[in-house]
């Protein structure tokens, strides 16, 4: 897998990607490039599994916003899976916790996959 993404797998029509570690100004550019490359393949449902992301700053959040825009533009669905408490707090400060579709379990994330 790439440095930005620890894992990527296909479950039916759903693509699941797993970033990990601290997503900050150092790591988010690479994550952005990887995520945009995936978006160009137009997965109908893209799940970003955030369970292993221990920290995210505004550059990481901005990457997710851009991914959302890209997926939304071709009519796909973006789902964020189980962000850690620290990352969830970041979404709340950014007032984006209501903007993203966030689910707590893999079963919910794959529901329509």
């Amino acid at each position: 897998m790439t440095r930005a993404l620890k894992e990527m797998r296909q479950v039916g029509s759903t693509t699941v990607v797993v970033p990990s570690g601290e997503v900050d100004l150092q790591r988010s550019p690479e994550l952005y490039r990887e995520m945009m490359a995936i978006c160009r393949t137009r997965p109908p449902r893209l799940v970003v599994d955030l369970r292993q992301v221990s920290y995210m700053d505004s550059s990481g959040v901005s990457t997710l916003v851009e991914v959302f825009r890209s997926v939304n533009a071709y009519g796909g669905v973006l789902v964020l899976l189980a962000p850690t408490e620290r990352v969830r707090a970041m979404f709340q400060i950014a007032k984006l916790d209501q903007f993203f579709t966030i689910v707590d379990t893999e079963k919910e994330a794959l529901r329509d996959g």
């Binding site: 700053d57 505004s58 959040v61 901005s62 916003v65 851009e66 970041m90 400060i93 950014a94 007032k95 984006l96 903007f99």
Partner: peptide, 17 residues
């Protein structure tokens, strides 16, 4: 904050915290 776009988010976070 009515517009969902990345720019200026860092300053918003600093001022919020």
């Amino acid at each position: 904050l009515e517009e969902v776009r990345p720019g200026g988010l860092g300053v918003h976070i600093i001022r919020t915290v």
